[in-house]
């Protein structure tokens, strides 16, 4: 059983919802990323979503864009992201890691080489924002061959027949994009999310994660009422950014602490959600 399947099975038997934090690999620093990931797990993360820095992150709002820019400024590359996953796996063989990024760095790496290196490093799934089902064939075959899950996005604009087409080839879980917009957008409509999630649920037994626009315990709790998993990204990065600017000479662990604290409160929100 894959790590992702195991985690969702365990959560289901405990009647709990998954919490998935997103951070950008190499932000705020490459040296700190692995320890940040461990801290996020300690704070209640069930699955980790690791952003692969890209020069042109077209679906990201300003907060995550800056994270990508900082990470690239710190000399990050796809190869180094894979190294971080391998490093994390030395101490944690249980928490699934899903990488989220854009097609070009992977294409440059080579789809088969990338799939092999990801499996070797201990990656469990991949979300590639700009590889919709129409463009995914080449990489999907490579991922399948090494047992990695390709995770598809469904958005509020996805028409129903297309939802069917997407869930038929989806593995791992479904990622429902809760807002029309970029990451970190403000206008989350939880009633709409609930309607869409139940519509997707009619078509698939896969777990459904919801992300984009969830920023605190309240919004996480509202989304967790319908979703199997809640993704939070921009809010964590914004929190670390704010902390970093709040004082001179902070230890990186203090900056991480800001994200950890927010994640803990979101964990409580998710767990308090009526199921």
């Amino acid at each position: 059983m894959s790590r992702l399947t195991q985690v969702f099975a365990d959560l289901q038997s405990d009647k709990r919802r998954a919490l998935i934090p997103y951070v950008v690999a190499g932000d705020p620093s490459p040296e700190g990323t692995v320890s940040l990931l461990h801290s996020l797990v300690d704070a209640g993360a069930d699955i980790l979503e690791l952003g692969v820095p890209f020069s042109d992150p077209m679906s990201e709002g300003p907060v995550i864009q800056k994270g990508h820019e900082r990470a690239l400024g710190n000399g990050m590359s796809l190869q180094r992201v894979l190294g971080m996953v391998a490093e994390f796996r030395k101490d944690n063989d249980r928490t699934p890691i899903v990488m989220m990024g854009y097609a070009n760095p992977i294409e440059r790496f080579g789809y088969e080489a990338f799939a092999a290196a990801s499996a070797e490093a201990g990656v469990d799934g991949l979300i590639t924002v700009d590889l919709p089902p129409e463009e995914v064939d080449a990489i999907d075959g490579a991922l399948k061959a090494v047992g990695l899950d390709n995770i598809f996005l469904i958005s509020p604009t996805t028409p129903e027949p297309r939802v069917q087409k997407i869930v038929e080839r989806a593995r791992g879980f479904i990622y429902y994009v809760a807002v029309k917009g970029v990451t970190g957008s403000a206008q989350l409509d939880t009633d709409e999310v609930a309607r869409s999630v139940s519509l997707i649920r009619e078509k698939t037994a896969l777990p459904i994660a919801v992300g984009f626009g969830i920023k605190d315990a309240t919004s996480a709790s509202a989304v967790a009422a319908s979703a199997d998993a809640v993704v939070v990204g921009s809010a964590l990065i914004a929190e670390m950014e704010q902390k970093a600017h709040s004082a001179e000479d902070l230890e990186e662990i203090q900056i991480h602490g800001a994200a950890v604290q927010l994640l803990q409160s979101i964990r409580a929100g998710v767990d308090s959600s009526p199921s």
């Binding site: 077209m58 679906s59 097609a103 924002v129 700009d130 590889l131 919709p132 129409e134 463009e135 598809f152 996005l153 469904i154 958005s155 509020p156 604009t157 996805t158 028409p159 297309r162 994009v177 029309k180 917009g181």
Partner: peptide, 12 residues
Amino acid sequence: GGKFVAETLMSA
């Protein structure tokens, strides 16, 4: 060529 965009834009 192709259509390498986020899902939200596919129906547009």
